[in-house]
């Protein structure tokens, strides 16, 4: 029962944060709403017994990436957008399409999940997703991918430096 309550609590927080990000006129507000969503999602991870991923989520997203966003927003000193943007047919179409996709996704979730295998007990799942097991899997089975992620991050760092240098573009 507690679990259900926590899920809905964090789910509501996440959706409200996401909507806030979507409709805030000031980019800084958007970013802050986004941080709220990310926290909520981290909490959901914890309720799923995936504590490791939850912690990582807070560290990387809320701690690193969002700070980077805020930093850039401040750096560019962006102003808020004017209140009423013109409502053209493209915006209406986008909205309708988005709702249609959502409806379809929900239909898929409610109608087509019967093909999935049997679920396991939550204690067993928590055991499988413990930090130890994730670490073993990462450094044995997925060691090569891990190295490649390192290379990718290095390349991204160099690329970011190059792009942000003056008179580059």
């Amino acid at each position: 029962m507690l679990e259900t309550f926590l899920f809905f609590l964090f789910a509501v927080v996440a959706v409200v944060g996401a909507l806030g990000m979507l409709i805030a006129r000031n980019p800084v507000s958007s970013a802050l709403c986004m941080i709220m969503t990310l926290f909520a999602i981290a909490c959901l991870y914890v309720t799923l017994d995936a504590a490791f991923i939850g912690v990582i989520q807070v560290l990387i997203y809320a701690g690193a990436i969002m700070v980077l966003f805020l930093f850039v927003i401040m750096l560019l000193n962006l102003e808020s957008v004017p209140r009423l943007e013109q409502l053209d047919w493209r915006k209406v179409a986008a909205f309708v399409l988005g709702i249609a996709v959502l409806a379809e996704l929900l239909a898929v979730i409610s109608l087509r999940l019967d093909v999935l295998p049997e679920a396991v007990a939550s204690s067993e799942a928590a055991e499988a997703a413990s930090a130890t097991n994730i670490g073993i899997a990462l450094l044995t089975e997925h060691a090569f991918s891990l190295e490649m992620i390192g290379v990718l991050l290095l390349a991204a760092t160099i690329g970011a430096v190059m792009l942000a240098k003056k008179r580059f573009v």
Binding site: I60, Y61, A64, I65, L68, F69, V72, L75, L76, I149, L152, L153, A155, A156, T157, G159, A160, V161, M162, L163, A164, F168, V169
Partner: peptide, 15 residues
């Protein structure tokens, strides 16, 4: 990947 993307993407936005 999201971290890498954020770094590059934000650099592009700055440029």
């Amino acid at each position: 990947v999201a971290a890498a993307e954020a770094a590059v993407g934000l650099a592009i936005i700055i440029a």
